[in-house]
Design a protein around this nucleic acid. Structure first.
Lengths: 196, 196, 196, 196
DNA sequence: TTCTAATCGAGACGGTACGTCCAGTCTTCAG
DNA sequence: CTGAAGACTGGACGTACCGTCTCGATTAGAA
């Protein structure tokens, strides 16, 4: 019955949030600054999000949804591909600063943790599931027998790939170059035992 | 006069910092609160550390230095051991909230990144190097030929172990239980190809 | 032409304004609250009044129009009567808080000052004029010679009565009891007698 | 032991408050603006005063303390003098807007009412008491018999003078010129003569 | 009776100020 | 002549109202 919320404002705010993350990083990003960039009142931000954390979750989630995993023909190639594209995403300044800060916040805030999982983490598991299904279709991996075991396995693979890339990029702060990608992919596919 | 207090004050401040991290988490920890807990003036904190980040780096680094890797007799067992003890450390509330927040901050602050690497990250590589050396001694892994390649390999293993555990604990927020540890250890030692 | 403004809404709004003045006082009265009490949209308020001040002027003016001055038989008694009834009005919480606040606002806003004069102040002069005419009819006061001088005299009397009562009630915050009324009336009537 | 509050800041703040009252009036005066004018942080204001009302009471009280009542030789002349100087004070924009607003606020806030009485109202009674004593010394008024009655009488006179002047200046908004002063003084002095 | 235009409620909007909290610096005084 | 106590400037916080602006849903009066 009343005036509906402006979709244009939503877009402007999320864009402004990403821009502020790039320029200022998580800890110097302020709600007032985002509002000013978006040409919007602070009230409008608080009417839609509960605070900085939830706003940034939504702003960053959109970036993760752009990830895709085209079929590269083999398990090895598909793993390489996902590693590279995930690394490229994390090397963007808005993603890096935001993701770790959100995880830090979420250790104290179960509601935020759920939002992050729903909006970001769980949606990326699709990449693992797709790649795994293709490898099974190709015969590179055995078919599932127990669906629960399959889910656990997918979760594990996701933790390993995402964790390793995050650690390489943000903690070790070393480049994800061809050498590292092929070493990691090799390790993942064949294990330590196979290392030269 | 009060010079001898210096060392005592240091200890009190770092203890207070850890206590505040446990109770409040990174984002709600304030310098004033730490000073009050330590029975010290804010001035004293700023005389010794440049701010919250550097103070917390030092307070948390001490916890990581307590990690040890006793010889458990096989590569598989040693990997299990390090995974478990690293997970145990990350499940402590002061470590979890602080580590992610520091990494987030460090994406914008190269000086802080270096401090974190020096005080925390690089010191833990010793665990990987030790374990690797033992495995080579046991004949489970081939001896090094190229020292540079060996270092790269150790870095990779470190990224994979630390990354996967961090991701499991803080992002997926699922328990590091026996099942996960043995699945991860198996994957790491033998690769995806070996999964049932 | 089209739908006319609702008279019921007008009444509800002015009643709500008076109720809000009683409960909250001038400074905590908000337009939104009045609208809610009246079961009306804020828009409707702003369509009829320019803001809080003009709305409250109208809400309060109605109260002043209820004042009456029955003939009590002598100048002394008539003055006592008007003092008492004016004091009773000012002791009502909605009048007290609103009147002074409006006067304060009006020091900066000539348009508001005029509205207050038209809607409230000038209309009460009738009480002085009536009383004065009766006293002249009774021979207690000399008849007017110069009409301009008579008007000036009436204004002075009004300032003295209204001013003294307001000051007693709102500034000194002491009761307008029998003792005070008779002392003030005595002072005023004796003084009046000496006016040319 | 610690750093004492800055007296210079106090002075700057009160000056800034008066300046802001002149320029903006009570209702548009903001704490942030006063702080900015005084070159001081908002925190400093709130450390010393509870809000706008108490700050303005103190800022305005100083102006009232400057009032003086030199001996003009007769009761008539002394009354004229106090009326004129009180009117001159109320015609200053900072006084007018502030005083009425404070009285309005105080109808809802007994603590504020007490502050206003202590800081402003009661201190001005000295003018009445002085003038009365002089008139008694000159034989223009009878000497006190009952001290309580004398106090009541002084309060009444104060209410009449202050009230009439305030009403003339702020409500009627007409000039306090020679004609009005002498008419009012005449009325008052004749009335006073009849007091027991 | 149907059209039609102003009014209605609801509430989102861009703003301004609030009063609080914390950062990091500076001043004072006690030991 | 160091260090606790705490006042200082500065700036972001999240909230409350302001007065304006869409909205769809009544309504009465004109057609």
């Amino acid at each position: 019955m009343a005036r509906p919320r402006s979709a244009a404002a939503d877009r402007a705010i999320l864009d402004a949030t990403r821009a502020a993350l790039v320029e200022l990083g998580w800890s110097k990003l302020t709600m007032g600054d985002v509002a000013a960039r978006a040409g919007v009142a602070k009230t409008t931000l608080y009417r839609r999000w509960t605070g900085k954390s939830t706003l940034v979750v939504e702003a960053v989630a959109a970036l993760f949804d752009e990830l895709e995993l085209p079929d590269r023909g083999s398990l090895q190639a598909d793993v390489s591909g996902v590693v590279r594209s995930f690394a490229a995403l994390l090397e963007r300044p808005e993603t890096a600063t935001a993701l770790m800060a959100l995880v830090a916040e979420s250790t104290r805030d179960p509601v935020l943790r759920d939002r992050i999982r729903t909006a970001i983490v769980d949606r990326q598991k699709r990449l693992v599931l797709e790649g795994r299904a293709r490898a099974q279709a190709r015969g590179e991996l055995p078919a599932d027998e127990d669906p629960a075991a399959a889910a656990r396995q997918a979760d594990l693979i996701f933790d390993v790939i995402a964790g390793a890339v995050v650690h390489r990029v943000l903690v070790s702060a070393e480049p994800v170059d061809d050498a590292w990608v092929s070493a990691f992919t090799g390790l993942l596919v064949s294990g330590l035992g196979s290392l030269a």
